[in-house]
Simulated scan of single mutants.
Amino acid sequence: MIWRPSNKRVMRHFGPIVDQVTVRSGLAEETPYGERHATGVLIASAEPREGRSSTALGLALAAAQLKQTQNVVLVDADLRHGDITSKFGLEKQEGFRELLAGTNGIAELLAPTSTSNLHVMPRGKAAVDWPDVLLSQEAGRAFGLLREQADFIVVDSPALSRYPESRLLAHWLDSVVLVVRAGRSRADAVNEARDVFSEKLIGAVVTRYRRIVPGFIDRYF
C-alpha cells in the first residue's frame, strides 16, 4: 500500500518545520571536504497518542518534496506499536529490527512510496534485545548504514513516559522535535521531555490545535 496524501496540505503544515530543521541542523549539508552529512531527526513525544507518527510522516514527506534531489528515509522505531508500519501495510516486511540485529544490506529493508525520493523502513520482525541494543555498537553501525543510504533521516519513536527507547535513539541522531497535543499533553510530562532532550531539541509541534478561523475561510490559505 502506498500512502498518497494531499501535497498542498502537507507542505502548508510541515513546510515551516522543514525550514526550521534546515536552519538549525542542516538538511544533508556539505562538509568542507565535499562529503554529504546526513541529518537525523528524532520525532518524540512525552505521552502516547499525541500525533507523533503523523508528524514524522508529514515531516519526511515535506522534506522529500522540498529537496527532491536528496534521499529521505522514514524509520519506524516504535517497535511495540509501529503506526508507520501499519499505515503503509508493511507488517510482514523486514526493517529496523533486522538492521539492529546485524543485517549488512539495507536496500532490501526500505519500502518505496509514491514520492520517488522517500522510502520507509518498517519496524521489522527480528528478535532483538530491546532496548539494550540501542546502547551497543550495533546501534552505531545501524545508524551509520542509514547515513550512508540517506541524506535526511526521520525517526518515529515511542512515548518517553512509557518506554526508554526515545532517549536512547536521540543519542544517535542530530536533533529532536517534540510533539505536543493541545488540550491533552500534561505540562509536567512535557517539561520533563524538554529537559531530557534539551541538548538536541530544536523545536516543538502542537497537534490538534483548534483554529479560531472558520474552516471555509481556512481552505483559501
Rank of each mutant, 00 (worst) to 15 (best):
V133E: 03
P112E: 13
A142F: 06
G105A: 13
T103G: 02
E98Q: 15
V128R: 06
A107P: 00
L118I: 08
E148D: 15
K92H: 12
G124F: 06
G124Q: 05
I106F: 11
E108N: 14
Q93L: 03
K92I: 01
L110P: 10
S136K: 06
T113R: 06
A101D: 14
W130T: 00
S116F: 01
E98Y: 10
N117M: 04
V133T: 09
L145P: 00
G140N: 12
F88G: 02
L100A: 08
T115L: 10
R97T: 09
G89C: 05
E91D: 14
M121H: 10
L90K: 06
Q149P: 00
G140H: 12
S136E: 13
I153T: 01
S114H: 07
M121R: 10
W130I: 03
K87E: 05
S116H: 11
L118Y: 04
F96A: 02
V120N: 02
G89N: 05
F143L: 09
M121I: 03
L134M: 14
E91W: 02
E98A: 04
K92T: 08
M121D: 11
F88N: 02
R147I: 01
L99N: 10
H119R: 15
P122R: 01
I106V: 15
G105M: 10
G95C: 09
Q93D: 10
K92G: 00
E138I: 05
L135G: 13
A111I: 01
Q149M: 09
L109F: 07
G95T: 07
V133G: 00
E138S: 15
R147G: 11
F143Q: 07
D132E: 15
V128S: 05
N117C: 05
G102N: 09
F152R: 00
I153Q: 01
G95A: 08
A150D: 06
L146G: 05
P131S: 11
E148R: 08
G124P: 12
L135F: 03
L118W: 01
K125I: 14
F143S: 03
E91S: 12
G102F: 14
L100H: 10
Q93S: 14
G89R: 04
E148F: 02
L146W: 12
P131C: 11
G95R: 12
P131D: 10
H119K: 13
R147F: 01
L109V: 07
N117D: 03
A126L: 07
F88W: 15
M121C: 05
Q149E: 13
L118D: 03
L134A: 08
A127G: 07
A139T: 05
